[in-house]
């Protein structure tokens, strides 16, 4: 009797230990290559950005730095971030005059279009890194995805170049890279933020109009900013879960 119980415990113990070690080993097999940033845990972060319209001076540093850092084609029409220039008649929010010569890459130097009766401002744009992203939903092959830390990325080796995502993005943030014929977009400088750096656009913004923020880090300054300012995301009616928050966003901005 006693012997049977001992045997039972021994067998069960072996079974449990072996199963546990096998599952750990299997996890390691599934994990594949070791992560390049071993101290970075995707589950500990949830990235977003705040953009302060009232601080943006349209210098174009962000556009140039982004192209430099991420090797974006220099030709106009290919941008991961760009700056739009709005001129709005105070009583006509429906018809703003918007332009973005070369995406703001060369800055905005002409004064001719000024209109004393209108209001003028810049709007920097980039991927909104939506939590419920339309571009991810339409991808037929799983080549684009929301990462566990809240960044929308493209798997270049998997992308077919079918362009569904380019059409699906309500913010026009995607393009097809002519060199690879795959979808390309802002990665929120994923190679930088996972190493503790800020994005190239935030690094070079001279007025602090752009601030990267980790929404899961309670000590991040983004929480203070969001608490103290009246912010808005672009196209909230689309329910995309956009995580780029604009302070001082005018109703005319599309």
């Amino acid at each position: 009797m006693n012997n049977e119980r001992r045997q039972f415990l021994r067998e069960t113990g072996k079974f449990l230990v072996l199963t546990a070690s096998a599952s750990v080993a299997w996890e390691a097999v599934l994990a594949g290559r070791p992560e390049t940033a071993p101290n970075y845990k995707t589950a500990d972060h949830w990235w977003g950005m705040v953009i302060d319209i009232e601080s943006c001076i349209g210098c174009g540093n962000c556009v140039r730095a982004c192209k430099e850092e991420n090797d974006v084609p220099r030709t106009p029409t290919y941008f991961r971030t760009w700056v739009e220039r709005y001129r709005v008649e105070p009583d006509d929010l429906e018809h703003p005059a918007v332009d973005s010569p070369n995406g703001g890459f060369d800055g905005f130097n002409d004064r001719a279009a000024a209109d004393p009766t209108a209001k003028h401002f810049f709007v920097p744009k980039l991927c909104n890194h939506c939590a419920h992203s339309p571009c991810v939903q339409v991808c037929p092959v799983g080549a684009t995805f929301e990462s566990p830390d809240g960044v929308v990325l493209v798997d270049k080796t998997y992308c077919l170049g079918c362009r569904y995502c380019v059409q699906a993005c309500p913010y026009g943030c995607r393009f097809i890279d002519p060199r690879t014929n795959t979808a390309d977009k802002c990665t929120l400088c994923y190679h930088r933020i996972t190493k503790g750096l800020t994005t190239a656009c935030c690094e070079t913004c001279p007025t602090g109009a752009r601030q990267l923020g980790d929404l899961k880090d309670p000590k991040d300054a983004i929480h203070t900013f969001l608490r103290e300012h009246h912010v808005l995301v672009l196209k909230p009616q689309m329910a995309t879960g956009a995580k780029v928050y604009y302070n001082g966003l005018d109703g005319s901005v599309r």
Binding site: T36, E68, A143, S147, L153, Y190, L197
Partner: peptide, 17 residues
């Protein structure tokens, strides 16, 4: 519904700034 290794691929880009 994506390849986990894509995260490392994106992360592998060299830093310029």
């Amino acid at each position: 519904h994506y390849r986990a290794g894509a995260l490392d691929d994106v992360r592998a880009r060299p830093v310029r700034y």
